[in-house]
Design a protein around this nucleic acid. Structure first.
Length: 795
DNA sequence: ATAATAACGAGA
DNA sequence: CTCGTTATTATC
């Protein structure tokens, strides 16, 4: 179109483009200014993809904003606007920056996660469709050829079929512990502005009553509160740190806890007052705070809740109702689930609640072009609701009113690519920045969810004990006899008589039985041979491990040997390694119940549903099929393997898996039974028996506070060659009070160091690490170091 | 990758 | 002291 680059004229107004270039180097993690040619004036809008000459080569980038002038002397011209499509929503741009800051990462890395690769053909097609507007748009008719990449033409707004198609595309099971991260709200608050003083208290008293500083943020109080500073004095919130650019010494940006929570309560009253609204409220009426929450959503208020779902809950329907209420308020919704199976269920529920064409499902399994097509449907605001697996956490929607995550303890919510953000934290940050509602739901409750409640950032949605009694299956523990367990060949070894009876009764009644067995491959950990208390390092409380049969127990975290280890619970000096049970359970059970069909659901083949007939269904955690009418009995076997895993979150994860499986049983009045083969005095077992995930989460969180674990403290892990890690640490201006643990050997000649700080110093730590990484990358340090803030697995 | 710039050293 | 060459560093 234009002649030579020399002759280009800058655009008349706002001729300077601030561009985020797509290079992964930390020291280049800032916008660069380019001149916009007059010819590009119209297309060069914020959010478009651009190509620029950067350091002698052409690189891609995103146009972040247009400004009048630059401080930089001589600017180059934007080479070109790749497409006028504004794929980077301003809301997402802000979110991405906050996420990068929190995780000590680069904006460009986060944008790679947030904006799917462009697919020019899809963009052109979708443009055509959009131009025709009107009725439900069939996209392909003209160019349906193109091997139509995807099976069948999918209406831009309709994810239904696509959802079905994806089933089983992603591994549904999840093994390791869930990610350890914490509500980031603090950073988000950053933009809320300088707040008042520091927050008092370290122990989790909700410092909800924020000061007059009054940002929009509620959560920041949480940050401050959560800081595990032993001294408990006032800690600058993380927010303060991020705000630092403006006001380095501002303390915690005090939120306006009223904003969300109070209005939520106001809603409760209103709704309690008018008593009806049943048509809206539906299943949420089973929870005292449910109707109020829904009411708040339908009025577009930023209510925030942590929801403990009832056993047997049709959670996709509940989320769909919440989405519908938000849509009714004229706002957008983003929902993230862990895997394709959950997504499919939610997708169906949304089709039912919203009708066709009001939502899209985003997930990796859809393939690049379909994925981009759906992204565009959201980005162009043609649908108000986006659901998906973790990549959907960044999905653009018009005027976001609600972000929701289901089963936030599932480790699939942790993004495995740099900077390793966790979907829960991203969504909470998003809620904070956008001032929208948030829903964190699951059968279980994570430490992070509990923290949101204890800090007053979110409100609890739980059923009353009465409702719970009516809905829960009958749950009983049965001792796991170590004598029998030594003989894994015998069926009865793994199937105590109580479990066997429950199963047989259910089968005789024509109901299916679910048997949950852990997957193999957990890291061996050690525990007291006497009382089975997991062995922890006397120095840093990290988990101990045994390298060989005769070796000295050594800490997985700080590497110290604990030669004279004595169990803090019983004083025992002998340790034993726990070994995971085998997976022959299915065949064994087949023999135990002759004539009954045995089906398995696991890693390789995951069943979504099973009919409501007598059958034994053996499943690994996370792969349990939903049974029509619910299971007559659920058996939780080989629990020892789960409970003694080396991971920090072993107990929480165990709880999550048990509750998720037990939730599939019929209620006790309908004959549903759950038998957990574990000692009834163990805390997770207690919590299961009483169906009290809140109690358990509070207990977990209290313990983590004591031990200085996330989410009560914040940790960063640095992995790489020893000298590289040392170099990075050396360049890091660690916040005062930072604890450095390690080194611990990692895979092939790599090592790992951990840095622990109080939550109040979390932002400071992230910034310091990013800065240090910048220094290293600026001087072309060859050896890479992986920086993970709140790493998914903490051994 | 490459271009600008600082640093350096040899010959006037 | 200047020019020409080479390290350094920033990358609009």
């Amino acid at each position: 179109m234009t002649a030579k680059s020399k002759e280009r004229e800058p655009a008349a107004t706002l001729p300077v483009a601030r561009v985020c270039v797509d290079v992964p180097l930390p020291h280049l993690d800032r916008p660069f200014d380019y001149l916009i040619a007059a010819a590009d004036d119209a297309a060069a809008q914020p959010g478009v993809r651009v190509k620029v000459r950067f350091a002698g080569q052409m690189v891609n980038g995103f146009l972040l904003e247009r400004v009048e002038s630059s401080t930089h002397a001589k600017l180059a011209f934007l080479d070109k606007v790749v497409s006028p499509e504004r794929v980077l929503d301003p809301e997402i741009a802000r979110l991405a920056r906050a996420v990068a800051d929190r995780y000590a990462g680069n904006l460009s890395d986060v944008l790679r996660l947030a904006v799917p690769p462009r697919h020019a053909r899809v963009e052109a097609q979708a443009t055509t469709a959009a131009a025709e507007e009107g009725e439900p748009v069939e996209v392909e008719p003209a160019r349906a050829d193109e091997r139509s990449a995807e099976q069948g033409s999918v209406k831009p707004g309709n994810a239904e079929r696509a959802g079905d198609a994806q089933v089983g595309g992603e591994p549904a099971g999840s093994a390791a512990a869930s990610a350890i991260s914490s509500p980031v709200v603090g950073e988000a608050v950053a933009s809320a502005g300088p707040g008042g003083g520091g927050a008092a208290g370290d122990s989790g008293e909700a410092v909800v009553s924020a000061g007059p500083g009054g940002g929009v943020a509620v959560g920041d109080s949480g940050e401050a509160v959560a800081s595990a500073d032993p001294g408990g004095g006032s800690t600058p919130g993380e927010s303060g740190e991020v705000v630092a650019s403006t006001d380095p010494h501002s303390g915690v940006a005090h939120g306006d806890p009223g904003g969300a929570v109070a209005s939520f309560e106001a809603g409760a009253m209103a709704s309690a007052g008018d008593g009806r609204g049943g048509e809206v409220v539906s299943g949420w009426a089973d929870y005292p705070a449910g109707p109020a929450f829904l009411h708040a959503l339908s009025e577009g208020r930023p209510a925030r809740a942590v929801w403990s779902a009832l056993p047997g809950e049709d959670w996709p329907a509940r989320i769909a109702e919440a989405a519908a209420a938000t849509v009714r308020a004229g706002k957008g919704v983003v929902v993230v689930v862990a895997d394709a199976r959950d997504l499919e269920r939610l997708d169906r529920a949304l089709s039912k609640a919203l009708g066709d064409g009001r939502h899209v499902a985003l997930n990796a399994a859809a393939g690049p072009s379909e994925r981009y097509r759906r992204f565009l449907a959201a980005s162009r605001h043609r649908v108000p609701v986006v659901v998906g697996t973790r990549a959907a956490m960044f999905a653009p929607v018009a005027d976001v009113g609600l972000v929701a995550i289901w089963d936030d303890g599932d480790d699939l919510h942790a993004e495995p690519r740099a900077p390793y953000p966790h979907a829960r934290d991203v969504l909470l940050t998003r809620a904070q920045l956008a001032g929208c509602a948030a829903l964190v739901g699951g059968f279980a409750r994570t430490g992070e969810g509990q923290l949101l409640l204890e800090t007053g950032w979110a409100k609890e949605i739980v059923a009353t004990r009465g409702t719970l009694r009516a809905r829960s299956p009958a749950i009983a523990p049965t001792g796991d006899d170590p004598q029998l367990a030594r003989d894994p060949g015998a069926v009865t070894a793994r199937l105590p008589s109580l479990a066997w009876q429950a199963a047989r009764q259910a089968l005789q009644g024509g109901a299916p039985v679910l048997v949950q067995v852990p997957r193999r491959g957990y890291l061996p950990s050690v525990a007291c041979a006497e009382c089975r208390t997991p062995a922890r390092c006397p120095h840093c409380a990290g988990p101990l491990g045994l390298a060989g049969a005769r070796s000295v127990p050594t800490c997985h975290w700080c590497g110290r040997a604990a030669a004279a280890y004595a169990c803090p619970a019983c004083g025992g000096r002998r340790l034993r390694a726990s070994v995971t049970g085998a997976r022959r359970t299915a065949e064994e059970l087949g023999r135990a119940f002759p004539g009954v069909p045995v089906r398995t659901s696991g890693r390789d083949e995951i069943l979504d549903t099973v009919p409501g007939d007598a059958a034994v269904v053996v499943a690994t955690p996370g792969a349990e099929p939903v049974a029509e009418g619910g299971y007559g009995a659920v058996l939780l076997l080989d629990t020892w393997a789960l409970l003694t895993r080396a991971d920090l979150r072993a107990a929480e994860e165990t709880m999550r898996r048990w509750l998720s499986a037990a939730a599939l049983a019929r209620p006790a009045p309908a004959g549903g039974r759950v038998v957990v083969v574990a000692d009834g005095s163990l805390a997770p077992v207690q919590a299961l028996l009483r169906w009290d995930p809140g109690w358990f989460a509070a207990r977990e969180l209290a313990e983590r506070r004591e031990l200085g674990f996330p989410p009560a403290a914040r940790m960063a892990s640095l992995t790489g060659k020893a000298e590289a890690v040392a170099e990075l640490l050396d360049a890091t201006r660690l916040p005062p009070g930072a604890e450095v643990l390690g080194p611990v050997p990692a895979s092939d000649d790599q090592e790992r160091m951990l840095v622990r700080v109080s939550r109040g110093k979390a932002a400071e730590l992230a910034r310091a690490l990013h800065e240090a990484a910048s220094v290293r990358s600026a001087k072309k340090a060859a050896l890479p170091v992986r920086i993970q803030v709140d790493p998914a697995e903490l051994l």
